[in-house]
Design a protein around this nucleic acid. Sequence first.
DNA 1: ATGACCCCCCAGGGGGGA
Length: 255
Amino acid sequence: MQLATWNVNSLGVRLPQLLDWLKAHPVEALVLQETKLTDDKFPQAEIEAAGYHVVFHGQKTYNGVALLSRSPATDVVRNIPGFADQQARVIAGTVNGIRVIGGYFPNGQAPDSDKFVYKMGWLTALREWVRGQLAAHPELVLMGDYNIAPDDRDVYDPVAWAGQIHCTDEERTHFQQLLGLGLSDAFRLFDQPPKIWSWWDYRNLAFRKNQGLRIDHILVSQALVPSVQSCEVDKPTRKNERPSDHAPVLVTLSR
DNA sequence: ATGACCCCCCAGGGGGGA
């Protein structure tokens, strides 16, 4: 079975692509980020007609997350418990015994900004919550748009991006601390070719020049590592006529 | 080439993304 994450950059715009994508990629579960829809406008009927259960947590204009699954998700959680947050960034549920957590991590804007301070606090709250989730659910996947490029290998121009948002030591330390909970970056469980990204700027002909970052990740718990068969970025979806700036990322499990 | 986008808001430009 496959699990996947995709920052769709407006589900209102991308719904037809999502429905096409699900036909071509009948994944067991998919988390979405940047749906940018309040819950009353969420296209639940269309997604259910495509054969998926769905739970969601949105807001106007910004952020918004959803969890689609072939079987219903149970124990659904919206946002990080105990962390007061005006922004809709997390949705979690248990699907076929696997705890699936989808996150739209804060961007952070710039290392000297208030938004960076928020990003750091959010990451700390997420880590402490996920620590408990792992104790309760040994089979766990934490996936989404992390807005962190974990390593210089994940950046098309690491010199130009050194110290910039997504690439600061503080963000990378947070990523390592998530791994320290007992999670593994599914993509790095395998030898990978260089220059694999999950996001390409709309500007500067970035996709055509393959100038991007790998900031969308699937972290799996140790109990799941033996069943991970592959982890791939679905780059062709970024070539669609009216694409999101992110490509989906998929993990394949032997179950 | 010192360029180059897209989506939201909601009606002319501004905020945000990464």
